[in-house]
Design a protein around this nucleic acid. Structure first.
Lengths: 348, 348
DNA sequence: CTGAAAGCGCTTACAG
DNA sequence: CTGAAAGCGCTTACAG
């Protein structure tokens, strides 16, 4: 039992085999072993196979620390985030780390407040670990780091955050996503489409509003009142839904700036006896499933494709690390409307 | 502009200074420079200071890859998770990585399904990166990895997951958390306390039910009916709330197995005109703030202290890495009741 | 086709 | 108190 614990707990008595061991066992030099394993150089297929077999038998794992030291690459990336909530970061991180794993690259998660002090600590750690590149994420597309990034000597990519001029960044295509959502409602015959969304100082709120206006114009419709900007919360949706109904003339559809607002709206309507989607259709934004699937009825909403964003960012970063030229600027990646029942589309 | 992009994008032309540069600048040997910077060895304070100044001037960052190679430690940890949702993982990861950052240790995030194939890929990556230890997380306390961990030669700690015998693990103290929640309700004068919770095959559901029973017994109360086990969803709470009311005699409080169930219950009551907490008090479990703060009224609920769990696990792992003995077994870490308004306590 | 040797940037006995 | 030298585990010119 003491033995078993020791085994489970520590590295003692466990000696990993090195490339020397492999070379010796295969009867070749370390040079040849290295080349055989990496598929470089030219050698007889027989030799290569013999080395591979020796490696397999010894359960050899190349030490990427040693390789990193000579190649001046660590095969690691840093992911910096201030979203401890996890709403945006985890999907991005999952997409990023899956795409990187296939390429032998691992991702450090560095989560903390974006305050100069903790940021300095975290950036310093990434520097000492000699990450090959950095992905900087945020909770909103119009905020970046509160400090100027010191010269890091490594490529950087921004995801769902604002980036300095000349940098490479990835953000969802909010405008077109909003257009698609509103087109969908118009296509279902809705004519009085209102918009309830987040705070005025969020760029995402403005982009989504612009998309709403553009799609209405396209369909020859007037906006149903002005967009109503406030917090990204259920309470905002709830209160605004009440106000809207009390004000008199009703919309026949509401495009909400996020799923939480949509949830508040739907809950308010349920209490008022207004039927969704029969009386008023609702579309949200985020496809935060724990909300979108739990509303009654389930919510039609925009999915921003966060894992894809992480993946694209990672691939671009890898290119930059390899010295390939990458066009600077913000890439707006497409979103996708997920049709459930709150919009009144027939789903069968 | 091309220059600026090159600077932002690549490492070319950026040469980091090494300990040799520092030594040369300070007029000492590399040996002395190393010792000065690490605070080891004995030397005049003046020399140490001179080396430090040289390092600062050169903006020297020790290369932890090189250090790792000689010390046979990478100062990294791996965090394995299958919770792509982020509900449990991100708080744990945040607590873990913050505690580790203070100690110069960085954390690899390895997220993916717990299927043998992808698990093998991810474990292999952690082995090649020579992480010093592994934190294995899950989405439920009674499920671990679907494969036997191969001998890794590194310490492992489990968090919010089931662990093999002899391993070190950390789970929330579900029983006592449930007891506290129910005691709180009893203390407020509630006498008919029902329990609606998750699936029968979740250990957490059983532990919370046991806590409910124990606290009732302690207070000399009978359980209000049997606990109602089903999905961890709003729909379950919603439907069960209806069924409960239609069945006749009402409870005066419901302890819910998670916040989503509580949310469903509260929503159903709102529609039925039953007042929370006046008619029936509600307590949840998870303190998932996006739910708990958005219910009307805001939800009293149990916080599992996930960041603390991550932190404790990391510290234990560090001890194991340092060869200190760590008692095997499951540590049940205390939870905390967050009192809001759904329980009817006066909060002022 | 194969190998001896140098070197990546550090730490740490060992010797003074 | 200080330093020359060896070595961590690899890769890669260089030479045959």
């Amino acid at each position: 039992m003491a033995d078993r614990n020791a085994k489970l707990q520590s590295a003692s008595a466990y000696q990993r085999s090195t490339i020397r061991d492999v070379a010796t066992k295969a009867g070749v030099s370390v040079t040849t072993a290295s080349r055989a394993l990496n598929g470089t150089g030219r050698m007889s297929e027989e030799t290569r196979e013999r080395v591979r077999a020796a490696a397999a038998e010894l359960d050899y794992r190349p030490n990427s620390i040693a390789r990193g030291l000579v190649q001046q690459r660590s095969f690691t990336l840093g992911l910096l985030t201030n979203d401890t909530y996890g709403r945006f970061t985890l999907p991005v991180a999952a997409g990023l780390s899956a795409a990187m794993a296939d390429r032998g690259v691992s991702v450090f998660l560095s989560a903390g407040k974006y305050e100069p002090e903790s940021l300095k600590l975290n950036l310093g750690a990434m520097e000492e670990k000699r990450v090959d590149g950095l992905v900087i994420t945020g909770k909103r597309i119009d905020r970046g780091l509160p400090i100027d990034l010191p010269p890091l000597g490594m490529p950087v990519v921004y995801v769902y955050a604002s980036a300095p001029e000349g940098a490479v960044s990835f953000v969802p295509d909010d405008i077109n996503a909003a257009k698609d959502a509103v087109r969908h409602l118009a296509g279902l015959g809705r004519r009085k489409i209102a918009h309830i969304t987040g705070p005025l100082d969020f760029k995402a709120a403005h982009l989504r509003e612009a998309g709403w206006r553009a799609a209405l114009a396209e369909a020859g419709l007037e906006p149903f009142g002005e967009a109503i900007f406030s917090a990204w919360t259920e309470a905002h949706g709830y209160d605004t839904a009440h106000a809207l109904i009390e004000a008199g003339e009703r919309p026949d559809a509401i495009f909400c700036g996020n799923d939480q607002i949509a949830r508040g709206v739907i809950d308010a309507f349920a209490l008022m006896g207004i039927r969704v989607p029969d009386d008023i259709a609702i579309v949200g934004f985020d496809n935060w499933e724990v909300f979108a699937k739990a509303t009654r009825p389930p919510l039609t909403t925009v999915d921003m494709g966060l894992p894809g964003l992480g993946r694209s960012a990672g691939l671009a970063l890898l290119d930059m690390i390899d010295g390939k030229p990458v066009e600077p600027g913000a890439r707006e990646t497409p979103c996708r409307l997920v049709v459930r029942q709150s919009c009144g589309a027939k789903t069968d």
